[in-house]
Nucleic acid binder design. Structure first.
Length: 583
DNA sequence: TTCGGATGCGAAACATCTGCACACAGATG
C-alpha cells in the first residue's frame, strides 16, 4: 500500500500531538510538527526522495525522521507510531483539536476522567463533571461545549475564493466607522494561500472600542471567541473565523508585518532582529542593550511601513506571498530576491470558453470583456467532443467556429488579437480528442485532463507526457485537475512531466479559477527551478471569472515567478513567434 | 527532534493578548 504525502504528514502530526501530550521535550514534538508541514509543501512524493537518496536534503528531516519516512514508504506502516498510539488513544488527539483545549487540558480529562473521545467529553461537560477539575470552572466547561459545537461547524480550511471576498466585505464595513483610519487584510489571505484558516484584519485607529464593538455585533456572527480592548475574534455561521486587531497609525508597518505571517517567517525575522540588537513585536523595533534588556521607549523605531521593518534589520522587503520561511529570508539577505510578476504584466489570456461549449458569453462578448480588462490578445478555447457534459465540439464544429473567431478578430481591430484554439481532452488511453490534422489548423491548443482522473500514477503521467510531446499542443491546462477541498490532484510524476515540458517547450498552466489554482504554488516553484514556461489563464466561462486573474498571480508569486517565465506576459509579436517556432 | 561541526554534545525558544482562573493555558502571526 502506497501512502500519499498527506497521509504521512498526518502520521507525523499525530506523533507530534502524542509527544506533546506526553510532555516530551518541546524541540522533539516541534520537529515532528515542522516536518509534517514541510511534507505537505513538497513538490514530489516522498517515495521519489527515498528512491534517489535525497530524503535527508529536506530541511527538518534528519536521521530519525528519515528512517521513519523510509519505513513508511517501504512498508506502509511505522512501528514507532503503532507503539506511541497504544500509549495515547487517538481520541485524545481529537480532543486536543477542539478550539480552546490544548495538550494540558486533553491530558487532564484523560487522566482524571478517563475521557478518550469527543462524545465522552461532551457527556461529561453536560453532567458538570469538568467544572470540578483543577484549573477548570463553569466557564471553562462551557467553553469546551462551545468548542465541540464549533468543531462540527468548521470545515478544515476555506478556499481563498470564498475567504477573500468575505474578508473584503468585513474590511469595507469596518472602514465605514468614523474612528477607523486605515485597514488591511493580513494573514494567509495576504500571502495568497489557496486555502485560508482564518481571516485576519488590521485597522489603525486611536479609539479601538467602536471597532471592537462592530466586530462582535456584525451580521453573521455565530460565536464570540474573544472581545478585548484591541483584539477580537468571532466565528461566523459559515464556519469562518475572523480576527480583528486595532493599532495606532505609527505601528502600522510592524503590525502589518506581524499580522501577515507566516508564523515561521516571523520567528526567523525576529531572530534576525535579535541578532541586530532589536526585539521586534507588533508595535515597533525595540533596541535592546548588551544584557538583553529593552532600552527606553524613546529609542523605539516605529515603522509606518513594512519596508522600514525589513530594511532596519538589513533585509530587502519580502513580498507577502513569499513569506513562508522557505528560503526567502536567506535570499533577501543576499539582495537577490526575484522580481515577482504583477497582474499588469499579463498581456493575454490563453484559455477561455464561450457559448459554443459551456461558456455563458459569445465570442464577441468575451473579446470585449477581455479588451476592457486590458488584454492585448486572447485565445478562444472551447471544449472538445469528449467533454460531453460541457457540450464539447465535434471536429466539424470547431472548424466551423473558426470563421466567427476570425470575424471577431477583425472587428476588434488592433486593440485586441483574437486567436482560435481549443481545450482538447486528453483521453483515458492517452490519445488526444482530435487528430493532429484538426489540431494543426488551430492557432493555440490547450490540452487538459477531465476524465479518468483516478488512474494510477504511471497512466496519468503517460497521458500528460503524450500531450506534452505532441507538436500541436502548446500548453497543458490545470495539470493536476484538482478541485480545492473537493477533489484531490491526480497522482502524477511531476518531475517527469516538467522535464518533458522543458524538453518540448510546452507551457504549463496556472489556472486562475480559485477552485483550481492549478498548478499549485509548490509545483510552480519546481517549474521555475526547472526552467519550464508557464501560462496564467482565467479559464473564464463568464464575466465574473475574468476577474479571477489576481488569484493566479498570487499563486505564481508564491512560486517565485517572474514575468519572463510566463508566455502570456510577452508582447503579441513575441508570443506568436514562440507559438510558431517552438521547435 | 535537527543541526552544526564534531566524531559526543550543546543549542534551538520570537512575542503578545485574552480568558478564566487565581498562575497559566491556549491562541495568534
Amino acid at each position: 500500500m502506497i501512502l500519499t504525502n498527506k497521509e504521512i504528514a498526518d502520521i507525523f502530526e499525530n506523533i507530534a500531538d502524542i509527544l506533546e501530550i506526553q510532555g516530551e521535550s518541546h524541540f522533539k514534538f516541534l520537529s515532528y510538527r515542522r516536518v509534517s508541514e514541510i511534507i505537505l509543501e513538497l513538490p514530489r512524493d516522498l517515495q521519489a526522495y527515498v528512491d534517489d537518496g535525497t530524503l535527508l536534503d529536506i530541511p527538518g528531516v534528519g536521521k530519525a525522521i528519515g528512517a521513519k519516512i523510509t519505513e513508511l514508504v517501504e512498508t506502509g506502516q511505522l512501528g514507532y507510531y503503532e507503539e506511541r498510539k497504544s500509549e495515547v488513544p487517538l481520541g485524545v488527539l481529537n480532543i486536543k483539536r477542539i478550539n480552546g483545549v490544548g495538550p494540558k487540558k486533553a491530558k487532564l480529562f484523560w487522566d482524571e476522567l478517563n475521557i478518550t473521545s469527543i462524545e465522552a467529553l461532551k457527556a461529561a461537560a453536560e453532567q458538570g463533571k469538568l467544572a470540578a477539575l483543577a484549573g477548570m470552572g463553569k466557564k471553562s466547561q462551557q467553553k469546551v461545549l462551545d468548542g465541540i459545537e464549533s468543531l462540527a461547524r468548521r470545515s478544515e480550511r476555506t478556499p481563498i475564493g470564498k475567504a477573500l471576498p468575505a474578508a473584503q466585505a468585513i474590511l469595507d464595513m469596518l472602514l465605514e466607522i468614523p474612528e477607523a483610519q486605515e485597514g488591511a487584510i493580513a494573514g494567509s489571505i495576504r500571502r495568497g494561500r489557496a486555502t485560508i484558516g482564518d481571516v485576519d484584519i488590521l485597522i489603525s485607529s486611536d479609539n479601538a472600542q467602536p471597532i471592537m464593538d462592530a466586530v462582535v455585533n456584525m451580521e453573521g456572527v455565530a460565536r464570540i471567541l474573544g472581545y478585548g480592548e484591541t483584539k477580537s475574534s468571532v466565528e461566523l455561521h459559515n464556519g469562518l473565523q475572523v480576527d480583528v486587531r486595532v493599532l495606532a497609525r505609527k505601528n502600522w508597518g510592524a503590525a502589518l508585518q506581524y499580522f501577515t505571517g507566516s508564523q515561521a517567517h516571523n520567528i526567523k525575522i525576529r531572530e534576525i532582529a535579535r541578532q541586530k540588537g532589536y526585539s521586534l513585536n507588533e508595535e515597533a523595533l525595540r533596541p535592546i542593550d548588551a544584557d538583553g534588556n529593552l532600552k527606553p521607549e524613546s529609542d523605539y523605531i516605529f515603522c509606518e511601513t513594512e519596508q522600514e521593518v525589513y530594511e532596519t534589520i538589513g533585509l530587502q522587503w519580502i513580498a507577502p506571498e513569499m513569506r513562508e520561511d522557505s528560503g526567502e529570508i536567506e535570499v533577501a539577505q543576499k539582495n537577490e530576491l526575484p522580481n515577482l510578476i504583477i497582474i499588469s504584466d499579463i498581456q493575454g489570456d490563453l484559455h477561455m470558453h464561450t457559448t459554443y461549449s459551456d461558456g455563458k458569453l459569445s465570442i464577441r462578448e468575451m473579446a470585449e470583456a477581455a479588451r476592457e480588462r486590458g488584454m492585448k490578445y486572447i485565445v478562444i478555447t472551447d471544449h472538445s467532443q469528449a467533454s460531453v457534459q460541457a457540450g464539447g465540439l465535434k471536429p466539424e464544429e470547431i472548424l466551423a467556429q473558426q470563421a466567427e473567431v476570425r470575424q471577431v478578430n477583425d472587428a476588434m481591430g488592433d486593440d485586441l488579437q483574437v486567436l482560435h484554439g481549443v481545450e482538447v481532452d486528453i483521453k483515458a488511453d492517452g490519445s488526444l480528442d482530435y487528430d493532429d490534422d484538426i489540431l494543426k489548423q488551430l492557432d493555440f491548443v490547450v490540452a487538459s485532463l477531465h476524465i479518468s482522473l483516478r488512474q494510477e500514477k504511471e497512466k496519468i503521467t503517460q497521458r500528460l507526457l503524450n500531450a506534452i510531446q505532441n507538436p500541436y499542443i502548446h500548453c497543458i491546462g490545470h495539470p493536476t485537475a484538482r478541485l480545492i477541498s473537493k477533489r484531490d490532484p491526480v497522482l502524477v510524476d511531476m518531475d517527469a512531466v516538467m522535464d518533458a515540458a522543458k524538453q518540448h517547450n510546452t507551457a504549463l498552466e496556472i489556472n486562475c479559477n480559485p477552485e483550481r489554482l492549478d498548478l499549485d504554488s509548490q509545483y510552480v516553484r519546481l517549474a521555475i527551478q526547472k526552467g519550464v514556461l508557464l501560462s496564467i489563464n482565467t479559464d473564464a466561462h463568464n464575466l465574473r471569472m475574468m476577474d479571477y486573474r489576481s488569484y493566479g498571480i498570487m499563486t505564481a508569486r508564491r512560486g517565485w515567478t517572474e514575468a519572463k517565465h510566463v508566455i502570456n506576459t510577452w508582447s503579441y509579436a513575441k508570443f506568436i513567434e514562440w507559438v510558431n517556432h517552438r521547435g
